[in-house]
């Protein structure tokens, strides 16, 4: 579904991605782990071109993203993204947050879009908050709204950028439950996370990343119980 080959990304003089390649298949849940500053968020943000790669290639469903003919807005409709800070639109109700892009990007009618929003908010357990503003919600609730908002575009893949790191510990489970549910429904997901529990339970593959490179990858079982690379071992011993 997504094929990444030899991806480079520099910020001015700083080389953040140093030639990473990956193949993400339909229905797969890939969890990217690694120390902070290893480039995992940048990798994720390159996938939907929020960051433009300095070199290398990304092919999504047969479309080469670096091609200037490609309408990147089209591509992004099929790649939902949930941000670390959620980035909800504070001036709109939760319903409007979810319904806006189906209306403005897909041209969906308002009644239909609101119905869709209510249904998605119901699925993430927020049926009673549809008229609230983001500022009135807890972190976990905001995170779930961000999920619903991304799902409203009916994406083929969901990208999660540290979805639980801005949350208080007692809210992490409600969010992970929503993500597990999504994974069980067959959604292709790329998740940058420290949640080893989640990676173990629903991840098909774990990629360990360090200093801009993919150091090691394999099934959660392999990576967590029997890491081969000393850097992976060092990292895991610190957080497990």
């Amino acid at each position: 579904m997504i094929k990444v080959s030899d991806l480079y990304k520099n910020f001015a003089d700083l080389e953040v991605l140093k030639g990473v390649s990956a193949h993400i298949r339909q229905g797969e849940v890939v969890v990217v782990v690694g120390p902070s500053g290893s480039g995992k968020s940048t990798f994720l943000r390159c996938l939907n071109y929020l960051e433009q790669p300095t070199g290398g290639e990304i092919v999504f469903e047969g479309t080469v993203l670096s091609n200037s003919q490609v309408n990147i807005n089209r591509v992004r409709q099929e790649m939902g993204m949930v941000f670390q800070q959620f980035n909800l639109f504070p001036h709109m109700t939760v319903t409007k947050n979810v319904a806006l892009s189906p209306m403005k990007v897909k041209g969906m009618g308002e009644a239909e879009a609101v119905e869709l929003a209510h249904s998605l908010l119901g699925q993430v357990g927020l049926a009673d908050k549809v008229d609230a503003y983001p500022g009135q919600l807890s972190g976990g609730q905001q995170q779930r709204v961000a999920n619903a908002r991304a799902l409203a575009m009916e994406p083929k893949v969901m990208l999660f950028d540290e979805p639980t790191s801005a949350l208080d510990p007692e809210m992490i489970n409600e969010v992970l439950d929503v993500m597990k549910d999504l994974a069980h429904k067959g959604m292709t997901m790329v998740v940058v996370s420290h949640e080893m529990g989640f990676a173990r339970e629903v991840g098909n593959r774990v990629i360990f990343m360090d200093e801009g490179r993919f150091v090691e990858e394999g099934s959660p079982e392999e990576i967590f119980t029997n890491p081969q690379n000393p850097r992976t071992q060092a990292f895991l011993s610190k957080i497990l």
């Binding site: 939907n48 807005n73 089209r74 790649m79």
Partner: peptide, 24 residues
Amino acid sequence: GQMEAARSLGMSYFQAMWYIVLPQ
């Protein structure tokens, strides 16, 4: 992040400006 969130949903630069950034 507001602009990025809007763009990640498939909105064009001007849609993101008009519906998300400018009202705020």
